[in-house]
Simulated assay, not measured.
Amino acid sequence: MTNEINPTPFDRSVLSTLRSLIPNRDVHSLAEAKQVAEHQAIRLLQLHGIDDGPIPVEFIAELPKIEIELVEAPVSGAGFWNGNAWIIQLNKHENYRRQRFTLAHEYKHIIDHNRADGLYLGSKDLPAEEQAEHAADYFAGCLLVPKMLLKRAYYGGMQRPSHLANYFQVSEVAILVRLRQTGIVEPSPRCQPASTPFSRSWQYRMNRRTRLQGV
């Protein structure tokens, strides 16, 4: 339960600010849920005074009541409340850029805690759980590759996906997706990789804990 977490004033301010951007009503489309996710990502960057890349995702790990674990697992990540803190587990075998994305993705689930039922109602084409995963991916993309910074870099002459990926410390796939999402490039079937879900039904818990190095 959220009221059992007892966060510090700073953590309470961050989470309450981000959660306050969620409408006090049901959100009936994934498009609107993604708009909420983008507003939350922008606000999170503003709260930390971040206006240049690469985005230092370390600030998520440094928030109170957040613990990071590197684990052996068949999926990229998972998150859960263990009674004392939020645990974000990351696949220890994946590269640092993927771990950055997964960390941001799982933090979105923490923001949505107790509000997901109203944010993701599901549709005949996409169940509510998958909508939540798409929104978390979108949040991670907006946080790590903000539209304003991507346009600044792209129109400033950094147009090769590999160069942009190095600058933002994300995968080239993530850059291609963000170039399409922000309207910088036209959509193309070969630029539309399937989103990798982090289904709640796939979440796992492990006793061994390892601190993420560099996050």
Rank of each mutant, 00 (worst) to 15 (best):
R208E: 14
L103Y: 02
A136N: 02
P189D: 12
L143W: 00
I66V: 10
E62F: 05
S29W: 06
E129M: 07
P64G: 05
D51K: 15
K92S: 06
Q169A: 14
I68E: 00
L176C: 11
S195L: 13
K108F: 05
A61M: 04
A41K: 08
N82Y: 08
D11V: 13
I55Y: 00
T210R: 04
R43S: 14
T196K: 14
R205V: 14
A73T: 07
F59L: 15
I66M: 10
S76Q: 10
H39K: 09
Y154L: 06
P161I: 01
V36R: 08
N114H: 10
D26R: 14
E186D: 05
R211F: 07
M158Y: 02
L119Q: 08
V27W: 03
S13R: 09
S199A: 10
R209C: 03
Q192M: 12
N84S: 10
N114S: 06
P23H: 14
H48Q: 13
A136I: 05
Q40K: 11
A194F: 12
Q89H: 04
L143M: 09
R152I: 05
L179H: 07
I175T: 07
I22A: 12
W81P: 11
Q89W: 04
K147Y: 00
F139E: 09
H109T: 05
D11W: 09
T102M: 13
L18P: 13
A31K: 08
E4C: 08
H39M: 11
D125V: 06
L21M: 14
R180S: 07
P54Y: 11
N82V: 02
A165M: 06
G79Q: 07
E32I: 08
L149T: 01
A104N: 03
H113T: 10
Y167G: 03
A73N: 07
M158K: 12
R98W: 13
H134M: 12
A104K: 05
L30M: 07
Y138L: 13
E130A: 12
E186N: 09
Y107E: 03
